[in-house]
């Protein structure tokens, strides 16, 4: 029977194990799990630990394993999107967390309601475990990618403040450009879109200390986090339309739910072979979103503010 190997015993790894166990064999591995001789072709490996994973992914895919990544490394995203590994009929899901991951599924769902899509803007609030918090801290000091009219622009991390409204109880948060991989992943899935951006919420202290090492150890888990996906385009008559949806949930829970949806999707044969990113038009987006909702993550849409 196919075994699911979850690598990493952090918040996401433990929660993913809880969601998947009971119906199929699931093994959780500590650290980076270097000895993969116990795997069989067709097994699913979920890389739920921090750090770069591109080389690791190539090694696992070459062994005939399905691979699902949960991390948010722009370096990995660029590497694997530009040079996807040769596969043996298996799937490589790049980015199956809250963002990238759930953000792509929501973007595709919103895009399907419009005739054309020009812009996708993602905002995230909160972190999962300590590894996620460290990525958040570092992301505000690096160059952050933005896509405009066919060109990638490197913005200064921590710039571009925008007040973004998340579902309650989060409400409005100041969000800033950051070094996160979502724009790369979304651009791969939405090749015709002319503008893509991703921002994350931050406090003044986060931005001021971003260039320093973390001054104190991160919390075991962040509080309630949020995701907001805004898709701009036009309807059949050419009228401008904006569709917004998001979630308010613990980031680790949302990430684990998304990873679980992709893992079960792979096992059920719903996910195509080769490189897969959330938001791919080929994916059964509604089915995957339903699986995310089935484990308690509540998807919400912004109804807009009626004009007088």
């Amino acid at each position: 029977m196919t075994t699911v190997h979850v690598v990493g015993r952090g918040i996401v790894g433990v929660r993913l194990h809880r969601l998947l166990s009971g119906r199929r064999p699931v093994m959780v591995h500590e650290g980076r799990w270097h000895d993969i001789t116990g795997t069989s072709p067709g097994d699913v490996v979920v890389l739920a630990h921090g750090g770069d994973v591109a080389d690791r992914v190539r090694q696992l895919v070459a062994r005939g394993l399905h691979v699902v990544t949960v991390g948010d490394s722009p370096t990995d995203a660029l590497d694997l999107l530009h040079d996807p590994p040769e596969h043996l009929g298996t799937s490589l899901v790049l980015g199956a967390a809250m963002s990238p991951g759930l953000s792509g599924l929501i973007a595709r769902h919103l895009a399907n309601q419009l005739a054309t899509v020009d812009e996708i803007h993602v905002a995230i609030h909160g972190t999962a475990g300590p590894a996620c918090a460290r990525v958040h801290h570092r992301s505000l000091s690096g160059l952050s990618p933005g896509y405009r009219d066919g060109d990638w622009i490197d913005f200064v991390g921590g710039s571009g403040r925008e007040l973004c409204w998340f579902p309650e109880p989060i409400g409005a948060k100041d969000c800033y450009r950051a070094r996160i991989s979502s724009p790369y992943v979304l651009q791969h899935a939405f090749g015709d879109v002319s503008r893509i951006s991703a921002r994350r919420s931050a406090r003044r202290r986060d931005r001021f200390t971003a260039w320093l090492p973390m001054l104190r150890a991160p919390h075991p888990e962040g509080g309630v986090g949020g995701l907001r996906v805004e898709v701009r385009g036009a309807d059949e008559r050419g009228a401008r339309q904006v569709a917004i949806a998001g979630i308010a949930e613990l980031v680790g829970t949302a990430a684990a739910a998304t990873a679980a949806a992709f893992v079960t999707g792979v096992l059920d044969g719903l996910v195509h072979e080769g490189l897969v990113v959330a938001g791919d038009a080929e994916l059964p987006t509604v089915e995957l979103l339903s699986r995310v909702e089935a484990v308690g993550v509540r998807l919400q849409e912004f109804t807009g503010i009626p004009q007088p």
């Binding site: 769902h109 309650e168 998001g246 509604v286 339903s290 509540r298 998807l299 912004f302 109804t303 009626p306």
Partner: peptide, 14 residues
Amino acid sequence: QRGGWRPLELPDER
């Protein structure tokens, strides 16, 4: 005073 968020209803196309 009006507007805001509501649960997203997914189409039953599975």
